[in-house]
Design a protein around this nucleic acid. Structure first.
Lengths: 115, 115
DNA sequence: GTAACTACTTACTCAGAGGTAACTACTATA
DNA sequence: TATAGTAGTTACCTCTGAGTAAGTAGTTAC
């Protein structure tokens, strides 16, 4: 294996770690919603209008386990739950921006021409 | 809907376009493999050692349809097929780098501590 | 008292993502 | 003649990501 191949193998490994966290229809949208500040369950649900409570609950749990999202219970009446990004979650800002930039670029280059 | 919400909605829209192209276990690894230059079917298969020919063929077709990858047939003996990135595919460089950077960061922050 | 809001959970269902194995067709080499 | 390499295709199977619908439990407003 030459050096170029080794670099390629290393990149493939690192990308898999990131993909495991990113993968799925809802994780990135949830994280994007939370980059605009702390939000409650219902607020995220309203931002991402077509997510079901089941999926939102499930994906928030997964993100919490991966230490991307922090869940805070407030002992108010009625009990409210707040979700926010952890420092690790906030470290995704650059990644999210690149996804957005490329998404816009892709839409301009391909989608508008074809459809 | 206030301005902050509008920005959030716009971001959610753009991210969905990008996610549709990126989504799946194999697309990003395939694109990363091709950032190291034009490669043949078997070479990509060797780089991504656990991909089956079926998945590789299927995902390459999808990437070709989205104009990320270009397929070139060479009339040699035996016939060889070469895959390379289109300019649109190459425009993913920043995105790929951020995925890699964050993957490395994530591994350092979470995986090493837990496991 | 009943409807609505908070934040979920549970059960059921289905499509499709992905895996395995075998097969095609052609060429080159031993 | 047989084995290996080129680049895939096809059939079949399994598992899980995601959707729907309904239920839970507490509070508040009408």
């Amino acid at each position: 294996m030459n050096q170029k191949d080794q670099v390629c193998q290393y990149k493939l490994l690192a990308s898999r770690d990131a993909l495991e966290v990113i993968q799925g229809k809802w994780r990135i949208p949830i994280i994007i919603a939370l980059t605009h500040g702390t939000k409650r369950f219902g607020e995220i649900q309203r931002d991402i209008s077509d997510i079901s409570p089941k999926m939102l609950s499930q994906e928030l749990k997964a993100l919490e386990m991966n230490k991307i999202v922090k869940r805070t219970l407030h002992d108010t009446m009625p009990v409210t739950t707040e979700y926010s990004l952890t420092p690790l979650g906030e470290s995704m800002t650059n990644l999210l921006n690149e996804i957005l930039n490329w998404g816009i670029h892709f839409r301009e280059e391909v989608l508008k021409r074809d459809n």
